[in-house]
Amino acid sequence: MTIDRLTLLVVITALALFFLVLEMVRRRALAERYSLLWLLVSGGVLVLALGRTVLDNIIFMQLGITYPPSALFSAGFVGLIVIMLYMTHVITLLSRQNRTAAQRIGLLEHQLEELKSSLDVTKNE
């Protein structure tokens, strides 16, 4: 199998993404569970880059798409939409948890103040 320039470029990009993700995990800039998603993405790009002829054939034969790049674009687009939906889901959960925590802080602070002032009263008696 000969490697042309384009393939090389894509392979390098995929590997860069892969190692960037690993580095971010190492520096705790990315949680492990999200890193998995991005490692899969970089792996997917790598496979697509190396198996381009196979991919071209599958797309052409099975889906009847005559211009393979458009298939790639739509696959990437769908992938991004799924990731964004997932991110909005995560934000929803986070803001709910954040709300509950903030409410609890307010309630506890109030309780603490009441306790303190009742302690002061007993001290002064």
Partner: peptide
């Protein structure tokens, strides 16, 4: 009695408190 929320949560979350 006053419960102070650490930052603005909006009327819904305030009422729920």
């Amino acid at each position: 009695n006053v419960v102070t929320l650490p930052y603005n949560l909006g009327i819904g979350a305030a009422m729920q408190t």
